[in-house]
């Protein structure tokens, strides 16, 4: 994926979320703004037949995986045009036919599921991999230890991607987790593990590529920690717990500004092309909004569909 595409995909997530938060009907959301580089860098390396699983912070991962913004917005707003007919929302959105096995809003809940998906892929004997994104909060959960152990034991084609945004709601990483570096958690299991700057999309992409080669060669799982910063509170209903000075400092680390500045400096993109890209992304989000607004809410009778 070119730098243009990386930039475009990050801009799309940011613009999409900026549109969503302005809507009165936005509902309960967890945003990926500030953390775009993690999903975009990761997804830039995934193949069509790979699968991505993520936490309930799913908007960034879903858009980075290439789901149509209109479908995503429809799902978030509870419309039947969403891939899960609006039943899953942000926390459980999925489109496995496009390589997005889906979100699961229980912290750490998707880790063991992802290992199972990886087992199914391994049993099919293909070169595909499963990537599972989770937050630093999930690193305190037993499910991670159980998954690391079995994935290593069985050489599962599983890439564990810790999006370490450094807070579980209000609890700082240092107050919740003893290890200084979360990638150290994977080391005793004998798998390659690395911590990278999650605000640098090319660093995330390059590390993902290295690990994806390792996994596709049948050498088993890998663990990638990406240090990131969220620009907004934990969720649309959570109080901001971080000091203003910290939030201001975080804004200066914006992965979109970082990449676009670099590209402008290197002459990879002109200011005019960058402005045009922003316009195009805005137009795409507007189109998504029109699509989602036109879609219907489910009939109440649907509450009993697809149960058993």
């Amino acid at each position: 994926m070119s730098a243009h595409e990386l930039l475009h995909d990050m801009l799309l997530i940011r613009t999409f979320e900026q549109h969503l938060i302005k809507r009165r009907d936005h509902g309960f959301q967890l945003f990926s703004s500030g953390e775009e580089a993690v999903s975009v860098g990761l997804c830039s390396v995934l193949n069509r037949d790979d699968q991505l699983l993520c936490s309930g912070r799913a908007i960034g991962p879903a858009l980075a995986r290439g789901l149509e913004p209109g479908l995503v917005l429809a799902e978030l707003l509870g419309k039947v045009a969403g891939p899960c007919r609006g039943r899953a929302g942000r926390g459980h959105m999925a489109l496995p036919a496009q390589g997005f096995f889906g979100a699961h809003a229980v912290v750490g809940g998707n880790l063991t599921i992802a290992a199972g998906v990886a087992l199914a892929m391994q049993s099919e004997g293909n070169q595909n991999l499963v990537a599972c994104m989770f937050g630093d909060g999930a690193c305190g959960a037993g499910a991670l230890h159980e998954t690391l152990n079995i994935a290593a034991l069985w050489h599962l084609p599983l890439l564990l991607v810790c999006n370490n945004n450094q807070y579980s709601v209000s609890t700082p990483r240092a107050a919740a987790l003893a290890p200084q570096k979360l990638s150290d958690l994977a080391v005793p299991f004998g798998m390659p593990a690395l911590t990278v700057d999650g605000m640098d999309v090319t660093a995330v992409r390059d590390a993902t590529r290295e690990f994806s080669d390792h996994i596709r060669a049948g050498k088993g799982p890998a663990f990638l920690e990406c240090i990131s910063y969220r620009f907004t509170p934990h969720s649309t209903s959570a109080r901001e717990s971080r000091p203003t000075a910290e939030i201001e400092a975080i804004q200066a680390l914006c992965p979109i500004v970082r990449l676009s500045s670099q590209m402008l400096m290197d002459g990879e993109i002109s200011q005019a092309d960058l402005d045009q890209m922003k316009k195009d992304v805005n137009a795409a989000v507007q189109a998504a909004s029109v699509f989602a607004e036109a879609a219907a809410f489910p009939d109440p009778a649907e509450v009993l569909h697809d149960i058993v």
């Binding site: 063991t112 599921i113 087992l119 199914a120 892929m121 159980e146 079995i150 034991l153």
Partner: peptide, 21 residues
């Protein structure tokens, strides 16, 4: 055979089943 890890045993069983096994 699996290690003593019930959450992962069921989680992996469920994930594998959801993915076609």
């Amino acid at each position: 055979d699996m290690p003593v890890a019930e959450a992962a045993m069921v989680g992996i069983g469920v994930g594998a089943a959801a993915a076609g096994m």
